[in-house]
C-alpha cells in the first residue's frame, strides 16, 4: 500500500470531503502493570480546507490524538484513514512517507534544529518534499525573509515559531497540524502566529488543525472538537468564523 499525496481532490457538490477520518480510536499506555487510557473510542473527521480546533485541558489526550492523526503513533484499537488509506496498517516506512508528503507539523516548543539557520531549518523539510515551496518563499510568507541567516538562538520565540510554520508550509502539505502553537509565546506574538495560520487557511487553502487549551481559539475555527479524559465531548460548528485580529487575546 502506498499512500500518495499531492493533488487536491475536487470538492463534490461544494461539500468538503473528509481528508482524514478517525474511527473509534483508543490509545492505552502501559506503565508497568498500570494501564492508562489516553484516548477512548474517539471518532472525528477532518475535512479538506477546514480550520479545525481541538480544545481541551492538559492531560485530556489532545496531543495523543494529534500524534494518531499525524502518523506519529499507532492507536491501540480503531482506525485512522487518510482518504481511503488505513494508516493503522501502514508500515513504518509508509508512515514516514505520509508525514513527509502530507503533513506539516508546528510544535509548542518550535523544535528547530539549533545548529541550523532559519533558512536551513526550512530546507530540512524542502530537501525531502516532492513539490516544495522555495525555502526563501516560505520565509517570505511568514515575514522572516530578512532573518534567513539567523540561528534559532538569535530569534525571538515568535520568530522561531514562524520559522517552524514556514518549515511546515514549505513541504506543501495538505494538512497542517499545530500542537499548542502559541503555548510558549506571549499574547501579542501568539496572536500574530494565529493570524498567520488563519491566513494560510484562507488564502492558501491549507487544512489546519490546531490543538489548544485556549477556548478563544475556537472562535477562529470552522469547527471545534472539545476533548476531555480521552473522549470528544462536544463537536461544534461555527457558522461565522471570527478573524484572529478581532479576538480579545
Amino acid at each position: 500500500m502506498a499512500i500518495e499525496g499531492g493533488e487536491r481532490r475536487t470538492h463534490v457538490e461544494g461539500q468538503p470531503q473528509p481528508l482524514l477520518t478517525v474511527r473509534s480510536v483508543s490509545k492505552i499506555y502501559r506503565m508497568g502493570e498500570v494501564e492508562v487510557p489516553a484516548l477512548r473510542e474517539v471518532d472525528l473527521e477532518i475535512r479538506e480546507g477546514e480550520f479545525l480546533v481541538i480544545l481541551g485541558p492538559s492531560g485530556s489526550g489532545k496531543s495523543t490524538l494529534l500524534n494518531m492523526i499525524g502518523g506519529m503513533d499507532r492507536p491501540s484499537s480503531g482506525q485512522v484513514l487518510f482518504g481511503e488509506q488505513d494508516l493503522t496498517r501502514a508500515s513504518d516506512r509508509q508512515l514516514t512517507l505520509f508525514r513527509r508528503h502530507q503533513i506539516g507539523f508546528v510544535f509548542q516548543f518550535f523544535n528547530l534544529v539549533p545548529t541550523l539557520t532559519a533558512l536551513e531549518n526550512v530546507q530540512v523539510a524542502t530537501d525531502l518534499a516532492r513539490e516544495p515551496l522555495p525555502a526563501r518563499e516560505a520565509l517570505r510568507i511568514v515575514g522572516l525573509e530578512d532573518r534567513a541567516d539567523h540561528f534559532p538562538s538569535q530569534l525571538s520565540g515568535g520568530q522561531q515559531q514562524r520559522v517552524a510554520i514556514a518549515r511546515a508550509l514549505s513541504a506543501n502539505p495538505r494538512l497542517l497540524l499545530c500542537d499548542e502553537p502559541t503555548g510558549n509565546l506571549d499574547t501579542t506574538t501568539g496572536a500574530q502566529v494565529m493570524e498567520l495560520l488563519e491566513q494560510l487557511n484562507r488564502e492558501r487553502g491549507k487544512t489546519v488543525v490546531v490543538i489548544t487549551h485556549n477556548a478563544l481559539v475556537s472562535r477562529m475555527g470552522d469547527r471545534t472538537a472539545e476533548i476531555r479524559d480521552g473522549r470528544i465531548v462536544r463537536l461544534e460548528i461555527q457558522p461565522h468564523r471570527e478573524p484572529a485580529r478581532s479576538l480579545p487575546w
Binding site: 499525524g70 506519529m72 513504518d92 516506512r93 514516514t96 512517507l97 505520509f98 508525514r99 513527509r100 508528503h101 503533513i103 507539523f105 510544535f107 516548543f109 523544535n111 534544529v113 539549533p114 530540512v124 523539510a125 525531502l128 518549515r167 513541504a171
Partner: peptide
C-alpha cells in the same frame, strides 16, 4: 531526542 523526533516527524526515515 527532540531534534530526532522532529526529523522523524518531518518524514526522515529511520
Amino acid at each position: 531526542r527532540t531534534t530526532i523526533g522532529t526529523l522523524r516527524a518531518l518524514g526522515y526515515t529511520r
